[in-house]
């Protein structure tokens, strides 16, 4: 029948070619870019990871999270504490951060299960602020000045310290996040997120435990952010509570909504725009945030479902 389209799994050669070109270009950029440009692009790849993580919660499961930076903070502080206070290897902080983020995901997910829209926004916003204020007031996390002098990780006898190293690390994390998102989206759990988003009662009638499914979305999103947070701590060697503000959460959410909730290529694009656009506007000085904000408003007015076109499929 003409209306039947090819199975989504059958990728178009054009899509594969496009993906290959993008990855090759991303790999080659450090050969030509200066260190400022590499800083910005590393940040962009980092945001791709964060936005794809939040996309699981907001895009797939249709839940709101205004405190997503808290999970990023959990990862960063885990890495900081593991290396500085416990004197252990940076790599050990990754599994520990995953565990900590999972707990944090359940903590935030638990009370939100019965809440909808406005209330969910308030609770998640509050959670984000609680985490920030807690690390700001604990002495073990260094209070307002945070943790300083986090040691660089070693990989195969090589110390990861240059911006090129971190450019590639965040590029690799972004690619892993894309692959993981893509696989999750077409999995039993990924579909269950969408069922719950679409019609919670119908999903429950189909034998789906909506509470467990929502929690799994929060936890999975938290894990993405926490892994990113570990490498962020390693790159910066210093972390402070003021990195994990409500503004940070909002910017990540902006990347997701701007690109198009639930659409992987859209979210990638949204993440890059959120990081790169303010830099491009740097020449216009103090007006740049205003121009950035106005262009965002314009995009949302013209394309309320996000930049990425509705009908396009990745590959």
């Amino acid at each position: 029948m003409s209306a039947t389209t090819a199975p989504a799994a059958a990728r178009s050669p054009r899509g594969t070619a496009l993906t290959a070109v993008v990855i090759l270009a991303a790999l080659g950029i450090p050969l030509v870019a200066n260190s400022y440009q590499l800083e910005v692009l590393s940040e962009a790849w980092f945001y791709v990871l964060l936005c794809l993580g939040l996309n699981i919660v907001v895009g797939y499961a249709g839940l709101l999270d205004l405190g997503y930076a808290a999970f990023f903070a959990v990862g960063a502080y885990t890495a900081g504490l593991v290396t500085l206070k416990l004197g252990l290897s940076f790599w050990l902080s990754l599994p520990l951060a995953v565990v900590a983020a999972s707990i944090a995901g359940v903590v935030i997910g638990g009370p939100t299960l019965r809440l909808r829209s406005d209330y969910l926004a308030i609770v998640t916003l509050g959670f984000g602020e609680m985490v920030r204020i807690t690390v700001r007031n604990l002495s073990v996390t260094g209070g307002a000045s945070g943790l300083v002098g986090i040691s660089r990780p070693w990989l195969f006898g090589y110390k990861l310290s240059s911006i090129e190293n971190y450019y590639y690390i965040f590029l690799a994390l972004a690619v892993l996040a894309v692959v993981a998102s893509h696989r999750l989206e077409r999995s039993r759990i990924g579909r269950a997120w969408k069922y719950v988003r679409s019609d919670e009662d119908a999903a429950r009638a189909m034998g789906i435990n909506h509470a467990a499914i929502k929690l799994s979305a929060y936890v999975m999103g938290a894990i993405f952010a926490a892994i990113g947070g570990c490498f962020y701590a390693a790159k910066m060697t210093a972390i402070a509570p003021e990195t994990f503000t409500f503004n940070q959460s909002l910017l990540i959410l902006l990347g997701v909504v701007l690109g198009g909730r639930g659409k992987i290529p859209g979210v990638i694009l949204g993440a890059i725009v959120v990081v790169v656009a303010p830099e491009l506007f740097r020449d216009i000085g103090s007006m740049r945030m205003l121009v950035f904000a106005l262009s965002l408003l314009l995009i949302m007015l013209l394309r309320p479902a996000g930049i990425w076109p509705e009908r396009w499929r990745w590959g």
């Binding site: 039993r188 759990i189 579909r191 269950a192 069922y195 119908a202 189909m206 999975m220």
Partner: peptide, 29 residues
Amino acid sequence: LRLFRELTAAENVMAGRHCRTGAGALDAV
């Protein structure tokens, strides 16, 4: 009707299999 309207018909029917299968998020990743 309480279909998952924005999903495909096949994805809708797949919902019925959820309770008879068990692969988790880690399996998928």
